[in-house]
Design a protein around this nucleic acid. Sequence first.
RNA 1: CCGCCCUUAGCUCAGACUGGUAGAGCAGUCGACUGUAGAUCGACUUGCCCCCCGUUCAAAUCGGGGAGGGCGGACCA
Length: 345
Amino acid sequence: MDTADRLELATRHTLEVIEEEELEALFDEGTPSAYIGYAPTGEMHIGHYTTMRKLADFIEAGIDVTVLIADLHAHLDDEKSPFDLLDARSEYYRVAIEGMIEAAGADPDEISFVRGTDFQLDEEYTLEMYRMAAETTLARTQRAGSRVVRESESPNLGGLIYPLMQTLDVKALDADIAYGGDDQRGIYMLSRETLPDHGHDAPVCIFAPLLSGLTGEEMSASKEDTKVNLNDSHDAVVEKIEDAYCPMGEREDNGVLEYLEYLVFPVLEEHGESFVVERPDEYGGNLVYDEFEELEADFLSEELHPADLKPAAGEYVSDVIGPIRERLDARPELLAEAYPEKYDQ
RNA sequence: CCGCCCUUAGCUCAGACUGGUAGAGCAGUCGACUGUAGAUCGACUUGCCCCCCGUUCAAAUCGGGGAGGGCGGACCA
């Protein structure tokens, strides 16, 4: 595969690449490494899946991929995860992530899993963190993490250590590429500024779009109705999509369309399948789409009505998470131990 | 170590001075209207009032103690 093809694969369906020329240079040199980190806090949802799907492209493009399960970060960010649940949540995340990677059409064995505490307590790492803390202002650090770390009237120090550690993770994992959702932008811009002073190249940054929530607002981990969980039952998925904000002919803040664009169609494309909308004859009969752009055009022209789209979308979204749901359902103890307050019986 | 302030519905808070076992907004649920959802109307729900002890016929409210959180002082003089 030549550099142009690898570039196309690695960057398709992404929001932003900083900088594309640097990525091109990495491909010319050989096999770059990329990493994405997830802090094991709340339950994994469909938004995680969209970033995960990209990893399959990375592997195919000849990139070494590492997934970091950032357990310390999960606690540093306002104690979102209690310290004594870090083991359980890390394990749940690993299994869920493997499921997503497999469902996305890649082999989980081709991805390296690393846990934060495996290396973030090393003397070298720690010492460098103190040095970085000494050279970075409060305001700069706060700004870097503002979209990731929980906002509060009385923020804890942990939220400021968070961006510094994430920056050091890039170096510790020797990553050429830092990949993540667009919310990570602030932190990785800090990394690009800081790392060259700490003996590591500024990482190429690739950002995935963040999906809108189903209620028209931002997707929120704490608001059930704004997102589809990976272990939601088929009926729960269909119902959430049915209840979703979806104005006819509009794509702004339209989570349903975004789910289809970034999740359903890429998977259908992988399997060579079409998207079928069952529509009563009264409204014109069934519709078949092979590309999202066709569906989008019909939706925008109001040829495709939300009331016909939603039931179909619900079915396909449920199918997409099906394999992951099966994995999680097969091991109920994972969720029970990771979220005892919710799954205790 | 000292002083002051805060803690009431899922969230933001009112009520406390002048005791009579709780309210608003938002959120949520359900209807109406739309061939979906939203918006808009209409209805409804929600509580260890941080904990313990005391005063009282009666305590979210008064007194004492404690916990958690915030702010300031103390060192630099």
